[in-house]
Simulated scan of single mutants.
Amino acid sequence: MYIIIYLSVYTYFQGQVAANSLYNGDIYSLAQRDTEHSSSHSRTPFPLHLPSKMVSQRDRELLRGDLRARSKLSTADRESLLKSYLPEDLSRPERRRPHKTPIRSFFKAQLHHLAYALTHIIFGIIVRLLQAYHAVVDRVFAIVYHHHRTPELIRKDVRGLKRLPQHLSTILTLRKEDDALAVLMDEVAELAAWSSCAGIPQLSIYEKTGVLKSCIPALHQIITTKLASYYGSPDQQPNLHLYAPHHPVHGSTTNPGKSTLTMLLLSSTDGRETIVDLTKTLAEMSQNGKLSPEDITPELVDAEISDITTQPLTAGTDTVLKPEPDLLLVFSPYLKLDGYPPWQIRLTEMYCTGSRSHGVNGDGEAVEYQGYMRGLWHFAGAQMRFGR
């Protein structure tokens, strides 16, 4: 008896809930009930989703009549009625159609390869033409502006320049050939002769390894021989003073009636090692009470470094160089200082002689007269703006 009363009340409330849901346009509760009911008879229940479109008036009346008649419609009829309002089953994986490469993609790829190849060919031709042009120009300058070991021709080449450097510095590289040292010393002698003929009184040569410092007497003899091939008799040759830091001066007696060429040899030891040694010396003097820390100023450090790197052991009035060079010539394909003392080039004009002919004339490190003259032309046309 109690079971019958309980089932009647439960069925009544279920019908009221379903009627209210249909009246508001929502069949979610009814779909859930039918799905639960059908799950006991079938293994493939319908998924529970909200309706994707509005319920039609006809279907609404059928469902309401079914509720009033207490399951007048069968389970299959209700499922077919609700099936149109349920979304499609998204659990099935979509089959991808095999991608067929059309002939259009093949021609497109070939067109890209052709454009890439043409771009490389065009730019390669342009680069080669530029290199050939610079090589021809260099050869023309080498013929037109050749010195022929005549001081008058060199003076004629520099006569039209607005200004000349009073202190010229160059960076040379020791090659790996067997006669590399002999070639290097001959290049130094050529630079000395050109500078003397052009009227440049001071010349500093930087070579990283410092091999030139170990053969200063032999280098002095080679330079003297080279000057003799330009000037002739010793009476017409300029005074030559050759030295290196912490080395004595090698040169003949100064003749007041002739010009003087002062040459300084530098290496990598005159760079970082010099500033380290100076720092140690100043620190020891400060600890021993010989120097006050307030007296260590940038001016003092600059003066000490200049004395160390530009003064020989036996300094004279004619062997004092200008601390900073006006022009730095780099005989190399690229502008590489290679350990050059940095405090000596704060206001120095730099010029790389081998950058234009690199790739055609070889390694671009050869010391040639046209490269030397291009450096002087560059310095004469440079704008010196030191500020106020």
Rank of each mutant, 00 (worst) to 15 (best):
N20P: 01
N255D: 08
S21K: 05
C215H: 09
P151Y: 04
R33H: 12
T101E: 05
E324Q: 10
T317Q: 07
E94L: 15
S292A: 13
E273N: 06
P234G: 07
R92K: 15
G362K: 06
H49F: 12
T281W: 05
R159E: 13
V320C: 07
S38R: 10
R78Y: 01
L327T: 00
H120D: 14
S355N: 09
V140T: 03
L161S: 08
Y243W: 06
L130Q: 12
R78D: 12
E365N: 02
T224F: 02
R70L: 11
R139V: 03
H246F: 07
L265D: 01
L130A: 14
P325A: 06
A193C: 11
S252T: 09
L86Q: 13
M185S: 03
V136D: 10
I216Y: 04
R92C: 15
P102C: 12
V211P: 05
R163G: 11
R60A: 01
D270I: 00
Q32T: 12
S306I: 00
R58F: 15
S40K: 13
G387V: 09
T209F: 14
L67D: 02
H147C: 08
L86I: 07
V249E: 09
S233R: 11
I5Y: 09
E273D: 10
H146F: 06
A19Q: 06
G364L: 04
I216C: 04
L347Y: 14
R78A: 03
D326W: 01
Y145Q: 07
R104A: 11
M1R: 13
D302T: 13
T319N: 03
P341V: 06
N255P: 04
S39F: 10
D338S: 03
L90P: 13
A180K: 07
L261G: 00
V158D: 02
G362M: 05
R139N: 08
T35W: 07
T173S: 09
N255T: 12
S52F: 08
H250P: 07
I122W: 12
D77V: 13
Q16D: 05
Q221V: 06
R385N: 15
L184C: 02
Q166A: 06
V249Q: 08
R385Q: 15
S105G: 12
L242Y: 03
R78F: 02
P87Y: 04
A283K: 04
